[in-house]
């Protein structure tokens, strides 16, 4: 019986796990409770793996540089961008955004960029953190 895996298993015993334990080093009894504690400053989060350069995370919008040309709305695949005629500015719904950064490429003024922020999950899709304007 050939079992070439045996050597690999014994070698693995002396190696560190490849997985980064996130958000806590050891599984807390309740992850929700743990995150609440983190929010209150009672516990610290085990940091996630660093994002690569050019990572496409939550969108950042420089309102003052925008000229209201609407080109970003034309190329957004998810229809996540809305034009507000009164202010001639845009509003981006992060919950709908698919993080393709196509709007960044087409923007003639370069006012749209992608930040490395990626922990965006909430229960309310219209929460303050989910709307960029």
């Amino acid at each position: 019986m050939a079992l070439p895996m045996i050597r690999e298993i014994f070698a693995q015993v002396f190696k560190r796990p490849a997985t980064n334990p996130f958000p806590a080093r050891f599984l807390p009894p309740s992850v929700t409770e743990f995150l609440k504690k983190v929010g209150a400053g009672e516990a610290t989060i085990n940091p996630p793996v660093a994002t690569p350069p050019n990572f496409r995370g939550k969108i950042v919008y420089d309102r003052d540089g925008c000229i209201g040309c609407n080109l970003c709305i034309r190329v957004c695949p998810a229809h996540a961008i809305e034009f507000i005629p009164e202010t001639k500015r845009i509003r981006i719904y992060v919950a709908q955004c698919i993080f393709c950064s196509q709007c960044n490429d087409i923007c003639p003024k370069g006012v749209l960029t992608m930040s490395p922020e990626f922990l965006l999950a909430t229960e309310d899709r219209f929460a303050e953190s989910q709307i960029v304007e």
Binding site: M5, E8, A18, P52, P53, N54, F55, R56, I98, F99, C100, S101, Q102
Partner: peptide
């Protein structure tokens, strides 16, 4: 587990080139 661990190296390079892990864009 071994196959998926070694797969991560390719995923990391894809992430390094394109910016994201799964939806390269």
């Amino acid at each position: 587990y071994l196959a998926w661990r070694v797969r991560e190296e390719a995923m990391d390079v894809i992430e390094y080139i394109t910016g994201n892990r799964v939806n390269y864009g």
